[in-house]
């Protein structure tokens, strides 16, 4: 197990380096790069050219970039926002995290519960209702759900005053309405996760319920409830639990679409701004951030399989 973890960590390191290098080269080769990053001020320009190793081969520039990161202990500076990128991330990640964490943890019991309910009542009215809801919320894009909710809640029913979440200052001034303003984006996220989870849970559980060991457990005298809880659920959760654990890693990356619709000042909005303003140093850092998050999530999923399911022994194949 330990060897496997080390091996995977090294592999991730290699993959991440290759990807970051590719992204770096691609951004450096953009025709608009120099004008956008260096700016017009000749003095700053000279300093930056010196610092980033202009005129040298791209590979060397890449190592200079890494060197600068290590030496200064940060991710560099965003020229457009005139701030340190590390500071931006430190400021924005908690906002996205706060928004994501609550829907994530509330949706897990609801989604799993609905999935179990639907699977146990398969092909009955309950199952049909739940499955219809699931297919609806899986199909309809979150930006449709979000904007429709905004219109009806704010303009038709007038339950909440503003369709957007409160900025920090307003939030401190009026915490009650501030919390209320976060309800809608959280609800959209919640509904999306619940729908996905219910679908997977239902599919997994129906498959387990039809397998032969379930028949055995009933024959040896367990009630439906006992055999479901003790045998079916444990097996059905095996493929689901790792992805839920992997999802924990993604909590710190914001959802672009939700943050845009509800104007949440999180990491997703920063990315959109960086893209629209050609803020390449920020873009580079954010892409690196997203890549590492994605790779870490995959790693966590793979590792937790081994922890959760004793049938899968990590790295045992070689021996």
């Amino acid at each position: 197990m330990r060897n496997y973890v080390i091996k995977r960590l090294l592999l991730i390191w290699v993959t991440a380096s290759i990807i970051v290098f590719l992204v770096f080269v691609f951004i450096k080769l953009l025709p608009q790069y120099q004008a956008a990053v260096l700016g017009v001020d000749p003095e700053i320009r000279i300093i930056l050219e010196e610092q980033e190793g202009y005129g040298k081969p791209v590979v060397e520039q890449f190592f200079i970039w890494i060197q600068n990161m290590v030496r200064e202990g940060g991710l560099g500076r965003s020229l457009k926002l005139k701030r340190d990128i590390g500071d931006i991330l430190v400021e924005k990640i908690p906002v996205s995290f706060r928004l994501n964490v609550f829907p994530y943890f509330t949706s897990i019991p609801v989604g799993i519960g609905l999935g179990i309910w639907a699977a146990l009542k398969k092909n009955k009215v309950t199952d049909h209702i739940i499955s219809t809801g699931v297919i609806f919320f899986i199909s309809v894009p979150s930006f449709v759900v979000g904007t429709m909710m905004q219109y009806y809640v704010v303009y038709v029913w007038k339950w909440i005053e503003s369709p957007f979440v409160f900025a920090e200052t307003d939030f401190i001034a009026d915490p009650v309405n501030g919390v209320l303003s976060y309800l809608m984006p959280m609800l959209v996220l919640f509904v999306g996760i619940v729908a996905g989870l219910t679908r997977v849970m239902r599919a997994e559980l129906t498959e387990v319920l039809t397998s032969e060991f379930m028949l055995l457990s009933r024959t040896k005298g367990l009630t439906q409830r006992q055999s479901t809880v003790r045998h079916a659920l444990r097996n059905a959760l095996v493929p689901i639990a790792p992805s839920l654990i992997g999802g924990l890693v993604s909590l710190i990356s914001g959802s672009l679409i939700i943050e845009r619709i509800f104007r949440v000042p999180g990491i997703g909005g920063v990315y959109l701004d960086a893209f629209n303003n050609f803020d390449y140093s920020l873009l580079m850092a954010l892409l690196m951030f997203y890549t590492i998050i994605g790779l870490t999530a995959t790693l966590v999923v793979d590792l937790s399989y081994g922890v959760i399911d004793p049938r899968i022994r990590m790295g045992a194949g070689r021996r």
Partner: peptide
């Protein structure tokens, strides 16, 4: 494939669009 799968789609899309 493993390396390609690690590339976030967002990165590919934005870089190609910028280029």
């Amino acid at each position: 494939s493993e390396i390609l799968a690690g590339l976030p789609f967002l990165a590919i899309l934005t870089l190609l669009l910028l280029r």
